[in-house]
Simulated assay, not measured.
Amino acid sequence: MLAIRLPAEVESRLEALAQATGRTKTFYAREAILEHLDDLEDLYLSEQRLIEVRAGRSKTYSLEEVEHKLGLAD
């Protein structure tokens, strides 16, 4: 269960969309969260990896190095 407070303008827009389409406000809130959750998780992970690389605790590899290691190089 999740309860969120929205600004009045956003609530009005959401209500209008729900009424116009016959869907619920919950449906659209769920869709918006699911749509952006993967992106937010990816952003968080990439920020953590960047911190690791800058601190010298993680190594990066070029595409050529990866291809060579996997036997995919020409």
Rank of each mutant, 00 (worst) to 15 (best):
S58V: 05
E41A: 09
S12E: 09
Y44E: 12
Y28H: 13
K69P: 00
G22F: 06
S62K: 04
R5E: 12
T60M: 10
S62L: 11
E31N: 05
R13T: 06
T26F: 10
L40T: 05
G22I: 03
A3F: 09
S12P: 00
E67F: 11
D42F: 08
G22Y: 05
E47V: 03
A73P: 01
L37A: 15
Y28S: 02
A3Q: 04
A16D: 04
S46L: 15
L63V: 06
V66G: 05
A8F: 01
L17P: 00
S12M: 08
G71A: 14
R54G: 07
L72N: 12
G71E: 11
A29R: 05
A55I: 03
L37T: 09
V53F: 08
I51D: 13
E52F: 13
Q48E: 12
S62W: 03
L37R: 13
L37G: 05
A20E: 09
T21I: 02
E65R: 11
G22T: 02
A18C: 04
V10M: 11
L6I: 01
G22K: 05
V53K: 07
A29I: 14
R5Y: 09
S62R: 07
L50A: 14
S12R: 13
E67A: 12
E35L: 10
A16Y: 02
E65H: 12
I51W: 08
L45P: 01
V66D: 09
E11T: 02
E15Q: 12
T26Q: 14
K25P: 01
R54T: 10
L2T: 03
T24I: 06
L43V: 07
S62I: 04
G56H: 06
V10A: 13
R54K: 14
G56K: 02
K59I: 01
S12L: 10
K59N: 08
S12Y: 10
A20I: 00
H68T: 11
Y28L: 09
T21R: 13
Y44T: 05
S12V: 01
L43F: 15
L17F: 11
L72D: 07
D38E: 15
T26L: 08
L70S: 07
